[in-house]
Write a protein that binds this DNA or RNA. Structure first.
Lengths: 365, 365
DNA sequence: TTGAAAGCGCTAACAC
DNA sequence: GTGTTAGCGCTTTCAA
C-alpha cells in the first residue's frame, strides 16, 4: 500500500496551483457571480444577457483563466479523460492505434491515459481498476484475455468499455462494445489471393495467443482454400513452441522466424506462408532469407494488419489492411453511446482490404 | 470556447462515482477519523498505534476502498499524472519511448497522459498549456522546436519539464533538463565503423528537421571521417527537398528513399550511406534495392536509434543504439528533482552503442 | 495517538 | 437573468 509520492515541493503556498486564477477571480473581475461564469463555461449561454456574456468572455481571456479539471471532476465525477490499455505501444500496431485514438479524443477535448499491460492479465486488470478509481468512465481495452467477464461488474456500474481488436463472444458481459476488423473476410481475401497465384501448399503461421483473432483468421483462410479445392488437412500449420508464451514487441517476429525455419526444413515445404499478423510475417521473411530463399520469388509471404512497416519492409509486405484511423475513431465514439440501449450494437466490424505488394508472387515454376 | 461534453448520463444520483466508497466510509467502519485513514494512506504510520493501523488497513481491503485522485489533486494541487508529448506514437521510436516512460511512471504510481503533437508547434504548445491547466506539474516533452523559450514562463511557475532527444542549448530556459543520447559520439562510432570497412566515399542523409540532432550527428560523423583523412567537403550530403517539411510516421523513410535515389543516380555514387535515423535508413535501403543494388554488399547503409525494426529489417540494420529504457527512466526521475538546484545538471547524456548487423560490409572490391 | 474542521475550485439546485 | 450556497473526497493544520 503505497500511494504517496508527491513532487518535490516548491516555495509556494500550501496550494500551489499554477496559473492560479479561479472562477471566483473571473466572477469578481467581471462583476458577476460564479454561477454565471460556470453557466457560460458549460454552454448555458441562454441564461444570461448577451452583454453579460461578452463581459465574462473577455474577462476570461484577459485573465487567462482555465478551468481546473480536478475540481470539475470532483464535482461532476466525470473527467475529460479516457483510458487506453494496450499490450505495448512499443509495438507499431498498438502505437498506431494509440495515435489515432488520441487524435479522436482530442477533437472532443478529451485526453488519453496510456497503459501498457505488457500482456500481463493481472496488470491489465489492475489498470482497469485504477482507471475506474481515478473516476475515469470510458476505457478502450485491447485485451489479451479471451474472456472479459472480470470487468462485467464495472460495466454494470456504468463504466463504458470498448474492446478493441476483438469480436463479440457469447460470454461477453452486457454493455461491452467490440471494435474489430472482419478477420474472417480479411483472411479469406488473402487466401483467394494466394490461391490465385497458383499456390497449393500453403502454411498458416501464428502463436496460440490472441486466440480470437487467430481462430477467425484461420477459419477465413481455410474457407478460401477449401473453395479452391485444398482440403483442410492439407493446410500446413505449425504446432507452436515455447516462444509462444512470452510475447512482446519482438516475440511475434521471433515466432514467425522459428516456425518458418522448421517448416522450410521439413519435407515438402510450403510455397506460400500466411502469417497471423505483420510482425510475425516479418519474422517469416527473415527465416526465408536465412534459408537462402527469396521472399516473393521462392516463397510468398503474407501478413495481416498493414502496419507502417509493411510498406517499408523489404520486400514490401502483401497484407490485409485494417482501417485503423476509422476504427480508432469509432472506438472513441462508442465510449459515448448509451449502454442501456437494447444491447444490439455490441460489435462493430470493419471492412478489411487486401494490399498486394512484393512479398507474394506466382508459385515458382 | 467549448469545454463541455460529458458522458451520457446514467441512472444514478447526482454524483455517480463508481465504487463510491470514500475515506469517510472507511473511517466509520474502522471506528477512526478520516485523518487517521488519510495519515495511513500517506505513509504517516508512526502517528498511530499498530493495532489501529491493522484495523484500518483491513477495513480498506474489505471495503475495496481506493482513494479518489481528483479529490486528492484538488486538495494537494498535485495529480499523480505526468504528461508525455511526442510527435507521434505511431512512429516506433516514440512508441518505444512512450512504453518505457509509462513503465517508469508506473513504478511510482504515476499515470501518463499521452499527447501526439504531430510535429505541429502550435499543437505542441497547446498541449503543454492544457496539461498545465489540468494541474499537471511534470511533462516529458519531445519537441520538434529548436527553441523552448515559449515554455520558460511555465518553468518559472514551477513546472517540471524534461526535454527528451535534445541536448542543452545556450538559450534554454532555466530549469529545463535535457535527456539525450550523446549524438556526437554515436555518429563518431559509426563513422569509424564505416571507415574501417574501407569506405571512402560516404554520404550522410537527413532532413533539415530535428536539427539539433542532425547537427550533432553530422559533426560527430565528420570528425571520424576527418581523422581518417577524408575531407569535410568530400562527404556527400543531400540538399533536401520538399518532403522535408511534411514529416510524419512514414515521411522519414520516404526522405531516405528520395535522397538515395538521387545520390545513386549522380556521378560517383557513395559506397556507404549513413542516415540520421533508422526510419530514414529504411528508406535508404529501399532505394538501394530499387536501384538494383544489394544493401551491405554494393552499398552499406547505417542508421541511428536502434528501433525494434532495425533488428527485424532485411537486411538487419547496422545502427547506433540509444539505451531507451534507461533514458526514459532517467527522464521520469528528472521530473522529480528539485529545479532550484544550482542549475548544473541541465543535461543528461547517455552513452550510445554501435550495433553492427548486416546492412554494412566491406567496400565492394 | 487521534479527531474536528476548514477549504481546494467547481457545479447545480434553488432562491431572488 | 443572476446570485447564494452546499458539497464533491480528500489533506492538513490545530486542538484534545
Amino acid at each position: 500500500m503505497h500511494w504517496q509520492m508527491g513532487w518535490i515541493s516548491n516555495r509556494r503556498g500550501p496550494h500551489p496551483h499554477m496559473a492560479g486564477v479561479t472562477i471566483l477571480d473571473v466572477a469578481r473581475a467581471a462583476g458577476v457571480s460564479t454561477s454565471t461564469v460556470s453557466n457560460l463555461l458549460n454552454g448555458r449561454t441562454e441564461r444570461m444577457l448577451p452583454e453579460t456574456r461578452q463581459r465574462v468572455e473577455s474577462t476570461i481571456r484577459k485573465l487567462g483563466y482555465r478551468p481546473n479539471r480536478a475540481a470539475r471532476q470532483l464535482r461532476t465525477g466525470k473527467p475529460q479523460v479516457i483510458g487506453l490499455v494496450v499490450p505495448s505501444v512499443g509495438n507499431p500496431y498498438w502505437g498506431a492505434l494509440a495515435r489515432h485514438v488520441e487524435a479522436a479524443a482530442l477533437t472532443q477535448g478529451f485526453h488519453v491515459l496510456l497503459c501498457n499491460s505488457e500482456r500481463d492479465p493481472g496488470r491489465e486488470r489492475q489498470y482497469v481498476d485504477e482507471l475506474v478509481s481515478d473516476g475515469i468512465r470510458g476505457i478502450v481495452l485491447c485485451s489479451s484475455l479471451p474472456s472479459l467477464e472480470h470487468v462485467s461488474s464495472l460495466l454494470e456500474d456504468g463504466l463504458r468499455l470498448v474492446a478493441f481488436d476483438r469480436t463479440a463472444q457469447a460470454t461477453d458481459p452486457v454493455g461491452l462494445i467490440n471494435v474489430s476488423v472482419d478477420n474472417t473476410i480479411g483472411a479469406e481475401l488473402m487466401g483467394e489471393h494466394l490461391v490465385s497465384l497458383g499456390h497449393r501448399r500453403i502454411a498458416f503461421v501464428s502463436g496460440a495467443i490472441r486466440s480470437i483473432n487467430r481462430t477467425e483468421r484461420f477459419e477465413g483462410f481455410l474457407r478460401a482454400l477449401e473453395r479452391a479445392g485444398i482440403a483442410r488437412q492439407d493446410v500446413v500449420t505449425w504446432p507452436g513452441s515455447s516462444v509462444d508464451s512470452q510475447f512482446g514487441d519482438v516475440e511475434a517476429a521471433e515466432l514467425g522466424r522459428v516456425a518458418t525455419t522448421e517448416l522450410l526444413a521439413g519435407p515438402n515445404p510450403p510455397t506460400a506462408i500466411f502469417a497471423v499478423n505483420d510482425m510475425t510475417a516479418i519474422g517469416v521473411c527473415r527465416a526465408v532469407r536465412d534459408a537462402g530463399l527469396e521472399v516473393g520469388q521462392d516463397v510468398s509471404v503474407a501478413g495481416f494488419d498493414d502496419i507502417v512497416l509493411a510498406e517499408l519492409y523489404s520486400p514490401a509486405l502483401t497484407t490485409v489492411r485494417q482501417p485503423m484511423k476509422e476504427m480508432a475513431a469509432a472506438a472513441f465514439r462508442a465510449l459515448h453511446t448509451p449502454q442501456d440501449d437494447d444491447g444490439s450494437g455490441t460489435s462493430l466490424l470493419f471492412r478489411p482490404e487486401l494490399v498486394v505488394r512484393d512479398s507474394t508472387g506466382p508459385v515458382a515454376g
